[in-house]
Nucleic acid binder design. Structure first.
Lengths: 200, 200
DNA sequence: GCCAATGCTGTGCGCCTGCTTAGCATCGGG
DNA sequence: CCCGATGCTAAGCAGGCGCACAGCATTGGC
């Protein structure tokens, strides 16, 4: 039986180091570069430890994904509760690390069907939470819901920020980026006024 | 020496079949699923043929990429020259196959540094060509360049369409998509009038 | 002081990978 | 009629992969 294989504790520092190494490799070389031997080497550990703490490589990916989703949801909630929610949301969604990792996970989802469901459901959670927050915010600002509905704001902000980050981080492209950022921020300024918090 | 290795003709039908198989595998299972043996099996051929027609797997990817870039640039030029360029552009940029493949190539670019330059340069070519076309179109329509500059239109359209396709094709997500599409199309209608050509 | 739980490792199996080499059949130009 | 070019293939090599299993220390509860 392989079901009685011993698995290390979830609170182990070694385990956390392996997860951290996985994230670094994904960001630097893409998900396909994540192998048990490379992850361990990156963390200065033996390769077997990967299989001691994670039954399969998919479990490793999922562990990383879950921690990042939790952090991301928390950050998003903070942004929505901030003094200037629109600016804060725009800033967090433009975070390069988070977006690059998300893109890698989406690419991974196309290769590992097992992981797809998890990623899709977390994406839905992000969207739902952001929607809920934006509904309150936009109503408070008195935005005409026939013009800018909260759901459209959510999708637009996600797509634009993620696309820009992806082009810049992965391809090194930046043509039209400054203009597009300025365009979006003009709209934010119109609704929420001049930015008072510093850009992250 | 390995430099005198024989390589098959570029016009070979077998070669084209291998490229086609590569595209199918990328779309179905992601770029990481592309291996010489799988590509050959998909095309009903022997694995060694992949190495007969392509010196390395990177060459295979580049061959596929180049043919798709050429077709894409041509399609984009046709759209820009169409009766209703904005509608046509919006339609072509929402093509699922093209976008999904592009996303896979971008993910691949993060893993294979050699390929990154090629992909980035083609992305720049697409953007430059679209910009050039849109400048003419928007001026013809009398769009206020202080409001919607051509470069912003280009970036916005690419990011929104690509993001929607990615979410839907890869993750099966669709929440907020219909509303966002309607939102964009309202703007297009405002500038270019009711769609006269059928949606692709 | 024992004993189970826990962290870690040495060894290795079976599989898949990219790529090579040597050689076979076919075919069109001289 | 030959000879080089071309399409294709059988066989295999070196290396990386996920993962398993047995066993070694260390540690903390009893």
């Amino acid at each position: 039986m392989s079901s009685d294989r011993r698995i290390g504790t979830e609170t182990s520092a070694t385990r956390a180091a392996l997860v951290a190494a996985t994230e670094e490799i994904m960001l630097e070389d893409g998900y396909a570069a994540v192998t048990s031997r490379r992850v361990a080497a990156r963390a200065g550990l033996k390769a077997q430890l990967v299989h001691y703490y994670f039954r399969t490589m998919d479990d490793l990916f999922l562990a990383l994904h879950r921690t990042r989703v939790e952090q991301g949801l928390e950050r998003q909630a903070q942004a929505l509760a901030a003094d200037q929610p629109l600016w804060a949301l725009w800033d967090t969604s433009r975070d390069p690390r988070g977006t690059a990792l998300t893109m890698e996970f989406i690419a991974l989802a196309n290769h590992r069907k097992v992981i797809r469901a998890e990623i899709a459901s977390s994406a839905e959670r992000f969207r739902a939470a952001q929607l809920e927050g934006l509904e309150v915010v936009l109503e408070r600002y008195g935005v005409d819901p026939d013009d800018w509905t909260p759901i459209v704001c959510t999708v637009l902000m996600s797509s634009i920020s993620r696309f820009l980050v992806m082009e810049f981080e992965t391809l090194g492209m930046s043509s039209g980026h400054a203009e597009t950022v300025a365009f979006v921020e003009r709209y934010i300024r119109k609704v929420e006024g001049e930015r008072r918090c510093p850009a992250q």
